[in-house]
Amino acid sequence: MNKFIGLANGITTCEGCAMETAARHMIEILGPRTIILTPPSCSAILTGFGRETGWTVPSFMSNLEAVAAYGSGVREALDILGKGDVNVVGYAGDGGTLDIGLQALSGAIERGHRLIYICYDNEAYMNTGIQRSSATPAGAWTTTTPGGKRGDRKDIDGMLVAQGIPYLATASASYIDDFRNKVATAMKVDGPSFIHLHSACPTGWRFNPAETYRVGKLAVDCGLWVLYEVVNGKYRVTRKLKSLEPASNYFTAQGRFKHLSRQEIDSLAAQAQEGYYAIVAKEND
């Protein structure tokens, strides 16, 4: 039997793009009976350009703020047409999810459609050329935060858990088996599911493309990006750390933080690592 190839080779994403790698694994798990929606963003490159397409499954390029709204209609139509087995998947970036797409996402979750929404979070508007989003971490340089971003990122996961989403998970392209397991779990959820995928971006974060998976792994190992899932409100950390790597290693590996002083990095590192223990504490609640 031929192996299902969900995404063609030779796609022109940036060198070292974690979003593309994750997409390959994601579609392999989802299988051919899947409809994919991508907004105009990095993931739209997978949907296609001109006469070419990347996905071998049906795909649609939605409007930036509207992946979840289109997905709601696709889902309800499939159900009434007797095609309830088809997966409806949104694959959107942080801008299209945390910023302009938040209203549609929140609405779709509230209504309870059976949708898999995967947000690949590269922490800025990368497709338009590295502008700040509400997912951009404190201190990070972008073209619209030339002196470093003030204030912390939006806690989208906390918001969606508070809204009562049946399944939410974080993931990292550097821990691909964990991500694959979570996609498989999301497929079984009778309702909306959300996977928040940390997607290291050499272009926007200013590091060597060969370092993508090391940088992504550092974020997890430093406790800055905690891998966990929340099933009906119950937290479970899927990668527990015996000890945390020094977070300063993560910041100094990327050009976007290079304007920060040692003191500022230490402060951000300490602050960020508190987040790891806060999630672990939730598991024990």
């Binding site: 649609f60 939605s62 709204a69 289109y70 709601s72 209609g73 139509a77 499939l78």
Partner: peptide, 9 residues
């Protein structure tokens, strides 16, 4: 958007 999505399938 939802109407277009439904129509598309």
């Amino acid at each position: 958007c939802a109407t277009v999505g439904a129509s598309l399938v």
